[in-house]
Design a protein around this nucleic acid. Structure first.
Length: 203
DNA sequence: CACCAGGCAAGTA
DNA sequence: TACTTGCATGGT
């Protein structure tokens, strides 16, 4: 898979906080639309936890309009910003020192942060060895009969932990190439594609 | 026009 | 616990 896509080095962003904002804005939304919203936040100079918290819900949601679900996402951005300010005074380096499991549980208690967003934050913003399960992962694994169609999030995640090196960089890259592989070779409406590079591994 | 995009919370049974 | 629904804009 790496031969097709190289080292993808996700997540594209200038700061770790920008990664976190991106994980929320891309929920159920194309990355293109989410990244436009991030550019708008940069242009308005409100890409810090403090700035987000001091911006009115209504104007924040206008700035991120292109990402869809913008009213709920404005609240979610405030919730994760509140968490970051309260937990580490916006010093993400402090958060990185916390134990992964504790951090994950705390993230999951935050409004708007579910399993995928929490894990994306852990691996892409905080450098933790965590595998992100998303719709692409489910589809491509299921298409290759590695999992059932109704497999749960943790079931899929545990499968990867059992079969794959638990290292931040590898888990980061694996998720990234899975997404790109699914986009290119494993579209939602088409059947299993014989060119899929994951097929080489499965066979 | 239909369908999809790097989900989640809240409500219902 | 297991399903369903609302949230919304933008690209193909």
């Amino acid at each position: 898979m790496e031969k097709y896509f190289g080292d993808l080095a996700w997540w594209p962003a200038e700061t770790d906080f920008e990664v976190i904002v991106g994980t929320v804005l891309t929920q159920g939304t194309s990355w293109r639309a989410a990244s436009k919203a991030i550019e708008n936040l940069k242009a308005k100079n409100i890409l810090t936890a403090e700035k987000i918290l001091s911006t009115k819900d209504s104007s924040l949601s206008r700035v991120i309009r292109s990402s869809g679900y913008h009213r709920v996402k404005a609240k979610r951005l405030k919730a994760i910003s509140r968490f970051i300010v309260d937990e580490c005074a916006s010093r993400l380096g402090v958060l990185k020192k916390q134990k992964t499991e504790n951090l994950r549980k705390k993230l999951l208690k935050t409004y708007g942060i579910g399993p995928e967003t929490a894990d994306s934050i852990l691996v892409y913003a905080l450098g933790k060895p965590v595998f992100v399960v998303d719709a692409y992962t489910k589809r491509i694994f299921s298409r290759h009969n590695l999992i059932g169609k109704d497999a749960s999030y943790s079931e899929i995640q545990q499968l990867v932990y059992k079969k794959f090196p638990i290292e931040t960089k590898k888990l980061n890259q694996f998720h990234a190439v899975l997404v790109e592989t699914a986009k290119k070779f494993c579209k939602k409406t088409s059947p299993l594609c014989s060119e899929c590079p994951l097929g080489d591994i499965v066979r």
